[in-house]
Design a protein around this nucleic acid. Structure first.
Lengths: 116, 116
DNA sequence: CCCAATCATAAGATGATACTTATGTATGCA
DNA sequence: TGCATACATAAGTATCATCTTATGATTGGG
């Protein structure tokens, strides 16, 4: 599950989300990331490299530009991982389910109330 | 989606996976993490704090120990996020689907062949 | 050919994260 | 009351990921 580490970076997550809509050239992805994050071209290229090396995208040369596309179901592992917990909160799980879903007075956290 | 960043850390991921099986005390979680990662008690406590502050777990005091449990469906966001792409690789998507699933000779990467 | 465009790589700086040791706080028990 | 257990917090350090600038490699076009 290095997918969590891979998608943990917001830039890479954006790239993946962008590619989900269809293939795009490195230049287009770079422009997008520069607008959203204000980073340089090499920075984006490095993120693309990580996505390549981990098998989440593939590339094809087209003239002088490189077209990126998502690999077939890069999220298979993630879906699998998530599936292991699905039945836990699907509501089907009787005792534990209701137990977990209770607001449970006196059980809440001590400090926080930040994001969520 | 700070969940990716949260679960990006293997220690926190282990804790969450552990808690999916049921509640556990800080001490038990600490022992687990120490065995698996060889880190100190404060290190684990800091990870627990992050999980607390981000709302993924709640705690309850029981004597001198603190019992941790997963919040109700901490993965709701993740499932939602993933759902947006589900139909893309479900095989239902005709053209793009087959296109993406092709081995596509001459399209593969240049360098890699690492993890995946 | 030569130059411009597109993208990748190298090397170094910087910053965020996660670790460490040391200490604080609360509870239970003798 | 005093000590031990369980856990949290503080402060400092270190490690690692990500950024930057500089440069290389490939391709197309005049």
């Amino acid at each position: 599950m290095d997918l969590f580490e891979t998608l943990g970076d917001p830039v890479r997550r954006s790239i993946v989300e962008e590619l989900a809509a269809g293939e795009q050239s490195a230049g287009e992805l770079t422009a997008m990331a520069q607008v959203r994050f204000g980073i340089s071209q090499p920075a984006v290229s490095q993120h693309l490299r990580i996505l390549r090396e981990r098998g989440y995208v593939t590339t094809r040369a087209e003239g002088t530009r490189r077209i990126y596309r998502l690999s077939a179901d890069p999220f298979a592992d993630l879906r699998l991982w998530l599936g292991r917990y699905d039945r836990l909160w699907s509501g089907a799980l009787d005792d534990l389910g209701t137990y977990l879903n209770r607001p449970d007075p006196g059980t809440t956290n001590d400090r926080e109330r930040d994001h969520v």
